[in-house]
Nucleic acid binder design. Structure first.
Lengths: 344, 344
DNA sequence: CGTGATTGAGAAACCGTTTTATCAAGACTG
DNA sequence: CAGTCTTGATAAAACGGTTTCTCAATCACG
């Protein structure tokens, strides 16, 4: 469509019969001039299909309308929803996002950070796959603002995390709400902060004696946990799993044992990884961490920082929400697609 | 670390006792000068920690060292490996990647494309979740080069796809290699070009009469297909599935029926979606589409195009490769992590 | 009606590079 | 030794915008 030569502001000015200075001011709604002139310039620009060269603009304003997103989450399980939220918050402002996957390689991280800085990013958002670990790069003392989303930042940084405690509490409360009394929590390794937080919240609701089983973040561990629980007497009637993969393993194992979900046992997961949660039989009731909203918020914050507005440092906690499907019984099952995309 | 003021080339020039022109040429290995001068400038630049302002550079060279990646694959199943490859090919060249998810929204697509063009991207790579569909944006006649990776481009475009036929052939051959004779193909909807290609290749090897069952791309369909196949007499002893999710459904259904995989039946998938393939019991032998390599190639091509080098248009086909795990028997099972990351 | 304040618009400087054109000095050439 | 060729380096002009000054024309006011 648009071919060869790009329209420059110079062209707009000439056609509109004004100087470039006036044209610039007209288009940016700055400076003083007749409303008529401003309108004429704007219409001319629109008619000519003028799109300002972002590079030139960046050079003078020292703003590139670009932010960098750094992640070490290769599969994108966490990064993609966050990214979607960020983009959503920024696209209207004309801000684009550089995505850089850096594995856990410090050197690669440094390379990418430098590339970003060279490109004059207005800010950097760091995100990861684990809330209690820092990325293998030092982002402190950079000339640009940094926001940490779903990964740990240094003291005094602006950090966004989802509310593990509230999510775990809601999950456990949901189990009690559907009438379960013998609750257990099957979760990941004790070394994860979020595991400890969730386990704490679980016991807050289920009682200090309620069992918590630690293992890997895998379906296999879900199977094994069920084997253990059913080997002892008095198996649970409500299982809160640390993530959806464990939950899937648990549900599969229960079916293999002939234990009905949700009739005999309710199972609830954590993450709302749709690809897993929707494939379990029955579909998994789980906790959604609202990562997209977290991304949106991160986008908003980095923008404010980039514009020089003051942002209070510290950890901001965003609520999780319960997504009801059919693995807990009790509630009316909701159509999957609907529920998942229903968020505001 | 690096604080307040950035070092400009002006500073380097002053300290090195040369003009900015000389400094620029020294650092870019252009122009004529004593080797001594060149070296002195370079050393000064290094000592001062000079990093050129990419915006300013972009303005003169009309190259931003930036490319846009457009995708409609929300889950990142296909996009992320492609992206990883692209980044790998480009990071050494100092090129960064804008990632834009555009769902299937034409308007959103246009917004993002325009944002990219404003930022003077050197090229755009379009990728998607389906090889036979175009993205809902028109990228033809743009001022910048475009490469299509794993998505359909218009006539005469530079397009990269994985070799569905070869992959399907290899999968089927593998089933025969482990001694299977009654083969079936359980795959996705007939409307997908890759489904038809793979089915064709399957029959090429397995015989024209070999059954092909079409359904959804889901575990549920895998279950149902098994139910159907075992309802009739003479069930298959080798099943080639159109993707890993179907394969997982098939394997689960077989276990529920007490049919041993791989003793009684061999199952092979397609995609090598590790999160699925590694979680099936037994782990899934499957076909890897080499998406990362596809991304690398896309990166290389877009770079050549951006540099004005001639690139022959047309469709380039990259080979798939067989990833052996344990669902087919026959071969020595390979440790999962090893196999997956072993690629060159 | 003269004078100071306000308004609308433009000229020019600037942002940090690259690149082109220019130029002085030294190296050949005949 | 005068004239031409190289060579190494520089000044200045881009690149495409934004922003700061400056200034003439209009307006308000006593």
């Amino acid at each position: 469509m648009a071919k060869a030569e790009r329209i420059r502001i110079y062209d707009v000015a000439r056609v509109a019969g004004v100087s470039v200075a006036t044209a610039s001011k007209a288009l940016n709604d700055t400076g003083r001039m007749t409303e008529a002139t401003r309108l004429r310039v704007k219409q001319t620009a629109a008619a000519l299909g003028f799109r300002p060269n972002a590079m030139a603009r960046a050079l003078t304003q020292n703003r590139s309308f670009t932010v960098g997103l750094l992640t070490n989450d290769t599969y994108g399980r966490f990064t993609l929803p966050v990214m979607a939220g960020i983009n959503e918050a920024l696209v209207d402002q004309g801000v684009s996002v550089f995505l850089c996957g850096i594995e856990d390689d410090a050197e690669l991280g440094a390379v990418h950070v430098n590339a970003m800085l060279d490109k004059q990013v207005d800010g950097i958002i760091a995100t990861g796959k684990r809330i209690d670990r820092q990325l293998p790069v030092d982002l402190s003392g950079l000339a640009v603002p940094v926001v940490y989303a779903f990964t740990q930042g240094p003291e005094g940084a602006v950090t966004l995390v989802s509310d593990d405690a509230q999510g775990a509490r809601d999950a456990t409360l949901h189990l009690t709400a559907v009438g379960r009394r013998r609750l257990v929590h099957v979760t990941g390794p004790d070394s994860f902060a979020s595991v400890r937080t969730r386990a704490g919240a679980f016991r807050e609701v289920a009682g200090d004696e309620a069992p918590v089983l630690h293992g890997a973040w895998s379906e296999a561990w879900g199977h094994e946990a069920v084997a253990r629980l059913w080997a002892e007497g008095n198996p649970p009637d409500g299982i809160f799993c640390g993530n959806d993969q464990i939950a899937r393993g648990v549900i599969d194992a229960l079916r293999e044992r002939g234990v009905s979900v949700p009739d005999a046992v309710s199972v609830i997961g954590f993450d709302n990884w749709e690809i897993v949660a929707a494939a379990t039989r029955p579909p998994l009731t789980t906790i959604d961490m609202n990562l997209k909203e977290l991304g949106r918020e991160a986008g908003r914050l980095i923008l404010e920082l980039a514009e020089g507005k003051p942002v209070e440092p510290g950890i901001r906690t965003l609520p999780c929400k319960l997504v009801m499907r059919q693995s807990c019984g009790g509630a009316t099952p909701v159509a999957d697609k609907l529920e998942v995309h229903q968020e505001v």
